[in-house]
Simulated scan of single mutants.
Amino acid sequence: MARRPRHRRRLRLHRPKVHRDGRLVGAIGVGGGAPEQDHAFALTAVEALV
């Protein structure tokens, strides 16, 4: 019988970066929901900042 990994495979989504005047000034990372939900929330936050 094959061993099951103890951790789940994480979905790799990029962390939305915040640019102002062509310069990278930060990134947004969130957690607590499903990966797709966290990513959508972070993209919305970046849109609100720029």
Rank of each mutant, 00 (worst) to 15 (best):
R4G: 04
V50G: 13
V25N: 03
R3V: 10
A27R: 12
R9C: 03
G31N: 01
G32H: 06
F41T: 13
M1P: 10
H39W: 13
F41H: 08
R15Q: 13
G22S: 07
E36W: 02
H14Y: 05
A2D: 11
E36H: 01
F41R: 11
R8Q: 06
A2V: 13
K17H: 06
P35H: 01
R15T: 14
L11C: 02
R6D: 08
A2F: 09
L43S: 09
R23F: 01
G29Q: 14
R3F: 14
R6E: 03
Q37S: 07
R8S: 05
L49V: 11
H14R: 14
M1I: 10
H39K: 09
L49A: 11
H19K: 11
Q37W: 00
V18W: 15
P35V: 01
D21S: 10
L43A: 02
F41W: 07
R9Q: 14
L13E: 11
R6H: 00
L43I: 06
L24T: 02
V18A: 09
R8G: 13
L24Y: 07
R15C: 11
V50N: 13
V25D: 00
R10E: 12
A42E: 06
H7C: 00
T44C: 02
H7L: 10
V46P: 03
V50H: 08
H19P: 00
H39N: 11
V30K: 05
A34G: 03
R10P: 09
R4W: 07
L13Q: 14
L11I: 10
A48L: 15
R4F: 05
L43T: 08
V46E: 13
R8F: 10
V46G: 03
R10V: 11
V30S: 14
G32Y: 04
R3N: 14
E47M: 04
P5W: 04
R12S: 13
P16Q: 01
R10G: 09
L13R: 15
L11T: 10
R12E: 14
M1Y: 10
V46T: 09
V30C: 14
L43P: 00
L43G: 06
V30I: 14
L24K: 04
R12D: 15
P5D: 11
V18E: 06
G22R: 03
G32Q: 03
V50R: 10
P16F: 05
R9S: 13
R20N: 00
R9I: 12
R6F: 02
V50W: 00
G31F: 02
A40Q: 11
P5C: 07
G22K: 03
E47C: 01
P5K: 09
A2E: 13
R9M: 05
V30E: 03
A45Y: 05
G33F: 13
K17S: 12
G33V: 08
H19W: 15
V18P: 04
L11Y: 01
R12N: 12
V18M: 01
R23W: 03
V25H: 02
D38L: 06
I28F: 09
A27N: 09
T44P: 00
T44R: 15
A45W: 12
P16M: 05
R23C: 08
A40W: 02
R3S: 14
L11F: 03
E47K: 12
G32I: 04
T44S: 14
R6M: 00
V30T: 15
L13P: 03
H14D: 15
